[in-house]
Amino acid sequence: MWNSATIMMLAEGVFVTLYMTLVSTFAAYLLGLPMGVALVVTAKDGLRPNKIIHKILDTIVNIVRSIPFLILLILVIPLTRVIVGQSYGPTATIVPLTLAAAPFIARMVESSLLEVDYGVIEAAQSMGASLWTIIWKVMLAESRTSLIVGATIALSTILGYSAMAGAVGGGGLGDIAIRYGYYRYQTDIMIVTVILLVLLVQILQLIGTGLSKKLDRRGK
């Protein structure tokens, strides 16, 4: 059973899982990062308080976050068809993964940015910094280690979600685990896919933690 075809399949599974995870995380940050920044900036004590925008964003984030991923996956099938052209396969999975992860990322970005000392923001304001300068060079730059830690958590979570997408033909390791381990009772293959998933999370975690430590100048 452990022929080259199986090994190829597993290798492809790893590749597809990474593909879904990385592309979805990237796309989710394109949505979630500006949302997180907007949440902080429009908050009551933010740099540009705006009750309406803040409330809308906050509500969207809460609604999407409370929908279980498996349900969301099915709910957005029409949208996935429009964007990708089909509703199954790894590329199609990226759409619900991105939509599910973006609000989660927005919350993590929000909490990272709130860690920035308000005094430093005030100092930048006193120097005549514009809103954009403060967002880029103070809020995002100063919270970068926290943002990287958040990104690592996001990657692991999205990797987990991508495995779940296997249930509806999403492809990748989760798909293999379900098709072989569950439908065909090949427990050994399922165990191997689980080990591979664990390893992937470990590696991502190591890279993330290492990077955030390396970029942190607050220590000695």
Binding site: D117, V120, G128
Partner: peptide
């Protein structure tokens, strides 16, 4: 504001 500098009790330097 570029003509009015300010210093603070807690220095408020960019830590990174």
């Amino acid at each position: 504001r570029t003509n009015i500098a300010m210093i603070f009790q807690h220095f408020n330097l960019l830590m990174q």
